[in-house]
Amino acid sequence: MLYEYMDLIESIGLDLVFAAIFFFIGMAIKDVLKQGNVPPFGQKIVWLVLFLGCAGFIAKGIIQLSWEGTGI
Rank of each mutant, 00 (worst) to 15 (best):
L2F: 15
L2T: 14
L2W: 10
Y3H: 03
E4K: 08
E4Y: 10
E4L: 12
E4W: 08
Y5D: 15
Y5C: 15
M6K: 14
M6E: 13
M6N: 15
M6F: 15
D7L: 09
D7N: 15
L8I: 09
I9N: 07
I9A: 11
I9M: 08
I12C: 14
G13K: 00
G13C: 00
G13T: 04
L14P: 00
D15Q: 12
D15W: 10
L16D: 05
L16G: 08
L16V: 05
L16A: 14
V17E: 02
F18C: 11
A19L: 03
A20G: 11
A20Q: 14
I21C: 01
F22H: 03
F22E: 01
F23Y: 03
F23R: 01
F23L: 00
F23N: 02
F24N: 07
F24Q: 11
G26F: 01
G26M: 08
G26P: 04
M27I: 00
M27D: 06
A28D: 14
A28W: 04
A28T: 11
A28M: 12
I29R: 06
I29Q: 11
I29F: 03
I29L: 15
I29H: 01
I29Y: 03
D31N: 13
D31V: 09
V32H: 00
V32C: 00
L33Y: 10
L33E: 05
K34N: 05
Q35L: 11
G36H: 07
G36V: 12
G36L: 06
N37S: 10
N37W: 05
V38C: 06
V38T: 14
V38D: 00
P39I: 08
P40V: 13
P40W: 10
F41W: 14
F41K: 13
F41D: 13
G42F: 01
G42W: 04
G42Y: 08
Q43A: 11
Q43N: 11
K44W: 13
I45A: 07
I45Q: 03
V46H: 00
V46L: 02
W47Y: 14
W47V: 06
L48Y: 02
L48F: 10
L48M: 13
L48H: 01
V49A: 02
F51K: 01
G53C: 10
G53I: 04
C54W: 15
C54M: 10
A55Q: 10
G56I: 06
G56Q: 06
I58C: 05
I58E: 03
I58Y: 04
K60T: 08
G61H: 05
G61F: 12
G61Q: 05
I62Q: 08
I63W: 14
I63H: 11
I63Q: 07
I63E: 04
Q64C: 13
Q64T: 09
Q64K: 13
Q64N: 11
L65I: 03
S66M: 08
W67T: 13
G69Y: 07
G69E: 02
T70M: 05
T70I: 07
G71Y: 09
I72H: 02
